[in-house]
Amino acid sequence: MKKSALAIVVLLVLIPAVFPLILKAYLAFVPGEMVGGVDGWLGFLGGYSGGFLAFISAYLIYRSDQKQKEKTTLLLRPSLLEATPTDASLIFTTLPVSEVESDSKGELHFKYRIFNATLKNVSENYASNVQLLLCLKSGKLEPWSYNKHVNRNIKYESIATLEANESRVFNIQISEDILATAEEFDFILKSRNMYGQEVVQKVRLHLHLEMKGYTFVHRT
């Protein structure tokens, strides 16, 4: 909306300055007698520029509204509800892949601290293929999750598909060796909208060690 307002202001400044110059150039360089008077042409140009400006303003506002509707916005917040650990937990660990895959009882879910979270789609667009990645110095870390149907941990590629205003409760679990490195952890929240566009959001998990609490802060 800010860009649209700036474009309208620029047009308001340019139109009164440019049209008189065009009229002067016409009088100076076009041969023959001018049809109508200067006042008449100025009145015509004023009415024409006013209508043109109104059209451009309406179009820019329309495009701004459309882009807002096309945008997908997810909100990640701490949850008072608890999800079932073995069904809805994202486990971030630096253990070797072989060791994580060999855990056939989902024991990692009982070893790491649990952060209850609610993910809500607060936009008018739907969000598919929602992913959460933990940003470490070594790179982006994908989560694991215990799948009781195959009785082993698998890479958790998608949290959910969320319709407008739909929410999902799940757990985030981070291994102790990662938690010991800092009090803030950055995540990348990815999703795809109905137009197939990938939307990337930045979220920071802030630990309140003294109060044993935590918050999620969305960043630009």
Rank of each mutant, 00 (worst) to 15 (best):
K3A: 11
K3M: 05
V9E: 04
V10N: 00
V10P: 02
L14D: 03
A17W: 05
V18L: 13
P20R: 00
P20F: 06
L21I: 11
I22D: 07
K24M: 11
A25Y: 06
G32D: 07
G32L: 06
G32W: 00
E33A: 13
E33Y: 03
G37I: 01
D39T: 14
L42Y: 10
G43M: 08
L45D: 07
Y48R: 03
L53V: 03
L53K: 00
A54L: 10
F55K: 00
L60R: 05
L60G: 06
I61D: 02
Y62F: 15
R63V: 12
E70G: 12
K71A: 15
L75A: 14
L76H: 07
R77H: 08
R77E: 15
P78K: 03
P78I: 01
E82F: 13
T86L: 12
T86K: 09
D87P: 03
D87M: 14
A88L: 12
L90W: 12
L90Y: 13
L90C: 11
I91E: 06
I91W: 05
I91F: 14
E99S: 10
E101W: 00
K105T: 15
L108G: 11
F110E: 12
K111N: 14
K111I: 06
K111Y: 09
Y112P: 02
F115L: 00
N116V: 01
L119D: 04
S123K: 03
E124W: 01
A127F: 11
A127G: 12
Q131F: 12
L132M: 13
L133E: 14
L134P: 11
L134V: 09
E142D: 10
S145A: 11
Y146I: 05
K148G: 08
H149G: 05
H149W: 09
N151W: 01
R152D: 03
I154W: 00
I159S: 04
I159L: 15
A160M: 06
A160V: 09
L162F: 14
E163A: 15
R168M: 11
V169Y: 02
F170S: 03
F170I: 00
N171P: 05
I178E: 04
L179C: 04
D186N: 13
I188M: 08
I188D: 14
K190Q: 09
R192N: 13
R192A: 11
V199K: 00
V199Y: 05
V200Y: 02
Q201R: 00
V203P: 04
R204V: 11
H206F: 13
L207A: 07
H208K: 10
K212G: 09
K212P: 02
G213W: 01
G213D: 03
G213R: 00
Y214F: 15
Y214E: 00
T215C: 11
T215G: 13
F216E: 04
F216V: 02
F216P: 04
F216N: 04
V217D: 14
R219S: 13
T220N: 12
T220V: 15
